[in-house]
């Protein structure tokens, strides 16, 4: 019962926030200079039309306005949009009036999610052992080296890391493709680039968490009983730090999701991020609003899931 109240409260908060996000985006986009029909390609195309063609173009613009309800006041447009969005219908985009946006979202969000999830798994699979090693070898060259690297991994932005990876693995060694999407070799570099920061974060978190736990009385008891250090760390210290790790992964997920906007740009991956950027550049409002909505919704839902998972895994935590 408790959990249900918590759930419905959080969900309604998410819905209100999403509506706010959509409204803000709508107002901002409508104050932007230039609109889709003003953009270069259409104008260039019209440059040489004869008078009949120009009339047809005018008619086309009027129909265009009608089709996307652009002739209505903006709050009506937002209302229409929200009503349709509730049933996961976003209508067509400006650039491709023949493709419903929800079809695009389904494909592209899958793509982006794949990179992010692979990065996430990478973060755990690589980050946890690295953190443990650093903690085991505290204040040795190993520790400094690993922590130094993870510092760099955390600080250097993902797109610079991506560039570095391309230079090394594609340009110099020629092992992996520079860009593209669809085969397994295309996944490796983007996942590495996007996962670098989370790997580092996880490693640092695990290290400090283990070191913190080592100060606890029950660990000292374990030591005093003569249990080997490595075993103590793995059995007690590491286990205790794994549950809170979930709460570290939540924000990491949002960072990676937004980071995908840049990484997709570098590797030319047809995901949500590239869709968002091209929508902004082409003033494709329906597409822009929708991709913003999807990103925001994904982040909020993941935060909710993390909270619920955390409460489920740690009996001391109550949902409220």
């Amino acid at each position: 019962m408790h959990a249900l109240v918590f759930f419905s409260k959080r969900l309604s908060a998410i819905v209100v926030s999403l509506a706010a996000v959509v409204t803000i985006t709508f107002y901002l986009m409508h104050s932007a200079p230039g609109n889709f029909l003003e953009m270069q390609q259409v104008r260039e195309a019209m440059a040489s039309l004869d008078s009949k063609g120009r009339e047809a173009q005018k008619q086309y613009e009027i129909e265009f306005q009608k089709r996307y309800a652009l002739d209505k006041p903006i709050y009506v447009q937002i209302g229409i949009y929200l009503k349709n969005a509730a049933t996961f219908k976003f209508g067509p985009s400006f650039t491709n009036p023949n493709v419903p946006i929800e079809a695009l979202v389904r494909e592209k969000f899958g793509t982006t999610l794949q990179i992010v999830l692979i990065g996430l798994i990478l973060a755990i699979v690589a980050g946890v052992p690295l953190g443990v090693i650093a903690a085991l070898r505290k204040n040795t060259v190993w520790d400094y080296g690993l922590m130094g690297f993870s510092m760099i991994g955390q600080v250097i932005p993902s797109f610079v890391i991506a560039v570095g990876l391309i230079v090394i693995f594609s340009v110099m060694l020629g092992w992996l493709p520079t860009s593209g999407w669809g085969q397994c070799r295309h996944y490796i570099l983007p996942a590495l680039a996007i996962g670098a920061a989370p790997i580092a974060t996880v490693a640092r978190y695990i290290r400090s968490s283990i070191l913190e736990t080592m100060e606890q009385d029950y660990i000292r008891t374990a030591f005093s009983k003569g249990i080997p250090e490595a075993r103590v760390i793995l059995a007690h210290a590491l286990r205790n730090s794994l549950i809170p790790l979930i709460t570290v992964m939540g924000p990491q997920f949002s960072f990676m999701l937004l980071g995908s906007v840049l990484v997709e740009q570098v590797f030319r991956i047809p995901g949500m991020g590239s869709m968002f950027v091209s929508a902004a550049q082409q003033r494709d409002y329906p597409m822009l609003v929708t991709s913003t909505l999807i990103f925001a919704a994904a982040i909020m839902l993941v935060n909710l899931v993390v909270d619920v998972l955390y409460a489920f895994l740690d009996p001391r935590i109550k949902l409220e």
Binding site: G110, L113, Q114, I115, L117, I118, L120, I121, C184, Y187
Partner: peptide
């Protein structure tokens, strides 16, 4: 969750 990603792979 990650299997969806690896699946393609």
């Amino acid at each position: 969750l990650g299997i969806y990603g690896l699946y393609n792979c």
